[in-house]
Computed example of a mutant assay.
Amino acid sequence: MSMMDKLKQMLKGHEKEAGQGVDKAGDYVDGKTQGKYAGQVDMAQEKIKDQLGRPEGEAKPPHP
């Protein structure tokens, strides 16, 4: 079993909290880099949320 499979199994049912953690980590990185890499951070956040699973009712944002 891969590490990602283990994470998905552990977070099952807690997608909302995981998403909030991803958002908080992205905000931290944005703060430390003064927003210099905001676009890349946002893209990474969305990819992580896709991998972990999105909470019910949360839609994937459209690509620019």
Rank of each mutant, 00 (worst) to 15 (best):
Q40H: 07
E58P: 00
K6V: 15
M43S: 14
Q20L: 13
E46L: 09
S2F: 01
K12V: 01
Q51S: 14
D42A: 14
P62E: 13
D23I: 01
K32V: 15
G57D: 05
K36A: 15
G53H: 04
P62L: 06
P55R: 12
Q34M: 10
A38G: 12
K36L: 15
K24I: 05
E17P: 01
R54N: 10
H14L: 02
V29P: 04
I48R: 10
Q34V: 04
S2T: 12
K8T: 06
I48M: 15
Q20I: 05
V22S: 05
E46A: 12
E17M: 06
A18E: 02
E17F: 01
D30Q: 09
P55T: 06
A59C: 00
S2N: 14
K49C: 06
K36P: 02
K47T: 00
G57E: 03
K49Q: 09
G31D: 11
P55M: 08
I48C: 08
E58K: 13
P61L: 11
G21A: 04
K24G: 12
M3F: 05
L11K: 02
Y37Q: 11
E58M: 13
P61E: 12
P61S: 09
L52P: 03
P55D: 11
E56A: 08
D5F: 05
P64E: 09
K47G: 00
L7S: 01
G53M: 01
G13D: 01
G35A: 10
A44V: 09
E46K: 14
K36N: 13
D23Y: 02
L7Y: 12
G13F: 05
P55I: 10
V41G: 04
E58V: 15
L11N: 00
Y37P: 08
M10A: 13
G13H: 02
G39A: 09
V22Q: 03
K24E: 13
G13N: 00
D50G: 12
Q40D: 14
S2V: 02
